[in-house]
């Protein structure tokens, strides 16, 4: 990148309309014909939840679901997935309802700094869509393309197992995260729910 001679850049590619379905919504954006999917999603579509970690397909932070299969968006030209259905981390929750996998990542400590989390969530969700009774080995297989530097993976595996249990219907799913709390005793309860003398 450093030199005294001026190297002519490759002529700018022409801009083309790129269309796809992102998180259930049809989008059409103007993007260079050689644009990488990651750039289009972050800079044009605005799904900033898709993270750029390495640009080399080594960290998995940019994983998105393309027609149901996890794919590294940094190694994928936008043109290759023209017209496809793309799910990013923003598309996992149903309105205020977190998807089970999201709720479990929060609950089991599967996310610390959170930068790798969107990629893990997509990889995990893709696994759970296919297999709701994964073994730890299955999970390792599904997330081995994702790097996490904080958690040491153990709590991520626990999170995915927790979400699998919800998918199987064994455990109730998460409550909506941002619903206003119905609070019948807004000022704090007047009647203490304890026998006199119990408190010290």
């Amino acid at each position: 990148m450093v030199g005294s001679e001026h190297i002519e850049m490759i002529p700018a590619p022409e801009n083309k309309i790129w269309s796809a379905e992102v998180n259930g919504t049809p989008v059409e954006v103007l993007a260079p014909s050689n644009a990488v999917l990651l750039d289009v999603l972050r800079d044009k579509v605005g799904t900033l939840g898709v993270k750029r970690g390495c640009d080399l397909g080594t960290c998995g932070c940019c994983t998105v679901m393309v027609d149901g299969a996890p794919r590294l968006s940094c190694l994928c030209l936008a043109g290759q997935v023209e017209g496809a259905s793309i799910i990013t981390v923003e598309g996992l929750a149903d309105g205020a309802h977190l998807a089970p996998i999201q709720a479990c990542f929060a609950e089991y400590g599967g996310s610390q700094c959170g930068f790798c989390t969107p990629g893990f969530l997509i990889s995990a969700q893709a696994l759970l869509n296919e297999n709701d009774t994964p073994t730890d080995q299955d999970i390792a297989c599904a997330i081995d393309g994702n790097l996490c530097r904080c958690t040491g993976y153990q709590q991520i595996i626990e999170s995915i197992q927790g979400a699998a249990a919800i998918h199987r219907g064994e455990v109730a799913g998460p409550a909506p995260a941002s619903d206003p709390h119905p609070d019948p005793h807004p000022e704090g309860p007047d009647e203490p729910n304890m026998p006199p003398g119990h408190a010290r």
Partner: peptide, 21 residues
């Protein structure tokens, strides 16, 4: 307890350096 900012992180809404536009 889950981290208080974990919901922002699992929904992709946590804003890191390059997400400031």
């Amino acid at each position: 307890m889950p981290l208080v900012d974990s919901n922002a992180k699992v929904t992709g809404q946590a804003w890191y350096g390059d997400d400031v536009r």
